[in-house]
Write a protein that binds this DNA or RNA. Structure first.
Lengths: 241, 241
DNA sequence: CGTATCGTTGATACCTGTCAATCTTGGTGG
DNA sequence: CCACCAAGATTGACAGGTATCAACGATACG
């Protein structure tokens, strides 16, 4: 009873349902779903699942950032995707994971057992369609990243990354920056993780960020925060050069 | 009437329906679909759609190989995926393409207008689910390629590519090679295209293929055919090194 | 205030890109 | 049938970008 009212509260107060695939559902169906989910929290660095693990649950990211990593046998690794608030996380219709998922920051997830998700999807075609569209967007982003990894220089990749994160943060804060208020945001990744995301080494990432700083394009604020001082220049660096 | 019998013939003789997403449909529904499709042929090098084109149709590859490319404004390009017989080709639920699709060999496609595909998918949930699973597989392949582009050396990427194509060809020919019959296959891409697929230059591709040849791992047969003489060595080169 | 983690910077090596020349292959027309 | 030509493939010389190895500085945390 107490649990039920708690879960109902989750539904009514859910901060991401307007943006997540749940928004495809009519509200009473969404409420039905909210009785099935469990919220889980992970601290930064905690692993959510490991390579070869059974696929146990499907989740929506409530808050924080999740990194999805693939590894070679000798330890080289590549972050293949990042998931932010309201993004879908999971590998439905697969028995085993072929990735690592790890909390890049402290996070909260809204979890549904995988098989439950698969049956719910069958029951609500509008949800399946929303998930399909979500997966198609993921695929398109993956392809854009392949272009970056295969053909962009280190400085272009870093500029692209900063731009990407700055847009994410802007959306999260719900403000569209005018020229006067230059975007400031916290990097959710360490330099080393940025390297793993961009297919570079820590040193290369650090050097190019330093270069962007000394040329006045960005400013490093205390505590891993970054201010973009010249968004146009950054956008220009991201694609050509 | 003539057209109808022709289309019926397509359905009955369709060489890929057992493998394509159509296999999710019961045969009479598959026959209904076959009355809507149109087969189109493209010669090698012909473009199927261009960047910014409206999304007009969805297709299944009947025969040949299609390459999907993304470009930067200065002309650098990356092949983000290859599509073989029975693969799905298209960007349903998007208005515009953000890729180029081009025939890497002479090809035949089984085409359905995009909006028709979207309504058919709504009508047949088992087809939508098959397409969803297909898209999830595409996504996983894209992520594996991100690992290769971001973290593998040139020789590792080339070994991986040769292995990948050799597996594709094996499946296509329906024979599982014993140790005695070493796989021989035709490369569907030029050296330059292999470079675009692996994020390398033509010269680097050519050099490393030469190295594989002189070390006896592969043999080049006339007409762009390749025989793998040491599959174990190739597999080993593909992942570590 | 020591310690661990993260970030920065420097020196150097190596891999891949760039530029250029040559060779091979396949197709076309005389 | 052969000569020619265009496109693709190969090989070499060299330059440049990123990785590697190493040292040091900054920051957070107990």
């Amino acid at each position: 009873m107490a649990a039920l009212s708690y879960l109902t509260a989750i539904s009514e107060n859910c901060p991401v349902q307007r943006y997540a695939i749940c928004s495809a559902l009519q509200s009473h169906n969404c409420n039905i779903l909210s009785n099935m989910v469990v919220h889980k929290q992970f601290v930064r660095g905690q692993s959510i699942w490991r390579d070869e693990d059974d696929v146990v649950f499907f989740a929506i990211v409530i808050s924080g950032v999740v990194k999805l990593t693939k590894m070679l046998s000798d330890g080289r690794q590549q972050i293949v995707d990042l998931f932010f608030s309201s993004d879908c996380l999971g590998q439905p219709f697969s028995a085993k994971h072929q990735t690592f998922a790890e909390a890049a920051t402290d996070i909260e997830l809204c979890c549904l057992p995988r098989q439950k998700f698969e049956s719910v999807i069958k029951q609500y075609p509008e949800l399946e369609n929303a998930f399909l569209k979500n997966t198609l967007r993921d695929l398109d982003r993956a392809r854009s990243r392949m272009l970056a990894l295969g053909r962009k220089s280190a400085s272009e990749r870093i500029a692209s990354f900063l731009l990407e994160i700055s847009k994410k943060s802007r959306n999260a804060h719900g403000r569209n920056d005018s020229e006067s208020t230059l975007p400031i945001f916290a990097l959710p990744l360490t330099r080393s993780e940025i390297g793993d995301y961009l297919g570079l080494t820590v040193e290369t990432v650090s050097r190019h960020i330093s270069k962007l700083r000394s040329s006045g394009v960005i400013r490093l604020v205390e505590g891993q925060r970054i201010q973009v001082r010249d968004p146009n220049k950054l956008a220009q660096l991201a694609c050509n050069n």
